[in-house]
Design a protein around this nucleic acid. Structure first.
Lengths: 208, 208
DNA sequence: AGGCCGTTCAAACGATCGTTTGAGCATACG
DNA sequence: CGTATGCTCAAACGATCGTTTGAACGGCCT
């Protein structure tokens, strides 16, 4: 049913790549270990051998991408902290750009779909994992937003951050689907996308 | 594992109610017909007898809510069309209010979770069903947005609508979770929520 | 009463699920 | 050379999945 796609890399990485693809296409429940290992071109037992269980594999799929993504986000944010006059747009750029760079290549775009699924699932185990491992990133950005938007009540700020998060997740989860017009360069398209997302986020967060 | 919850109504409606709850909690794949029929207090075979298959049951869960929801949206929109000077805020109110009214009661809020899941799933069958049955609603609102925001290019408008849709879906899918503070009335809380969503949507759609 | 029809029921169907097992293979080290 | 060690493999495990079956039940009509 699912043709083998990966023929390079270690067994662990072939599994992670195939998992990212099939989790994005069919969900965590929908993608079976048999489809997954067949697509990766590895034995069925390899998942339990290398990762322990299917759930641990799911966690590893997230960890592989989010570790690098959130590190880049925090780096970009700390670079801004040095500047005397940081703007809302710059902070949002520090948050959005790394995610856009990630979804630049196909597998990265697939991961954004996986992430959007995880948000919609409302699965407690997964939420606790994400909160425990990457909650500090969101907390740091939230603090910065609060500093830049002192006129907003705490409740109002949380509402806006929640709405912006939803918009960005929804938008970036669709990147694998929409066809880029061939008459614009890859770089120009990415720049346009970044502009759309950032200007929308600025308007949503900072409107009077 | 799942206690029976429904003890009133016809078999079909008990199934639909339990399906809404379990689809929201565990997803379309994750909720089995055995859990579902046990929660509804009906026999396992009742689903296939009354709905034909599990997939048809999923469609019926959507149809039951979306028929009324989108009819109310279109009614509210057509009421506005008569007025000489309609504002962006009024059109967004026509779109958002019916959904908020729906998620007023518990089962309605659960359905918003189901809807958010369907968006994240990117399932082709389900998308075609939604597009075929309710695409005209989105098209009508889009036309109204285009009329009210003539300065926006078609591409820019689609981007903003997509982002606003994502924000609203994300926000409303969480309504079942967050606890309302007991010191504000139900009605006041709903009014505040509506204000947050509408003002955000106005800012996201209409910013210069 | 008797036959019909819509509905419910327990039981079973084959398929597929995540996981485990134990043998087999290769490479590295003494 | 012998033997650990890390990994892969086919095969099987019990559980659970969606769906089907045929008998049983209950109200309604003639």
């Amino acid at each position: 049913m699912v043709p083998p796609v990966n023929s390079s890399g270690s067994t662990k990485e072939r599994i992670l790549g195939a998992a990212e693809l099939l989790f994005a296409q069919r969900g965590f429940d929908g993608a079976s270990l048999r489809q997954l290992t067949a697509a990766a071109g590895v034995n069925l037992a390899a998942v339990n051998y290398h990762f322990g269980s299917k759930d641990k594999l799911v966690e590893e799929v997230f960890r592989r991408r989010l570790d690098a993504l959130n590190e880049r986000r925090l780096t970009a944010l700390s670079c801004l902290a040095g500047a005397p006059q940081t703007t809302l747009e710059e902070v949002l750029e520090a948050f959005i750009r790394p995610a856009l760079d990630l979804s630049h290549d196909d597998s990265g775009a697939l991961f954004m779909r996986v992430l959007a699924r995880a948000f919609a699932e409302h699965d407690d185990t997964l939420r606790q994992f994400l909160s425990a491992n990457y909650g500090h990133v969101m907390r740091q950005f939230t603090a910065e937003f609060a500093r830049l938007l002192p006129q907003l009540s705490k409740e109002e700020l949380y509402w806006r951050i929640d709405l912006v998060t939803g918009a960005l997740t929804h938008a970036m989860s669709g990147f694998g689907m929409i066809q880029r017009k061939s008459d614009v360069s890859e770089h120009a398209h990415r720049e346009q996308t970044a502009q759309h997302l950032i200007r929308f986020a600025v308007a949503g967060l900072g409107h009077p």
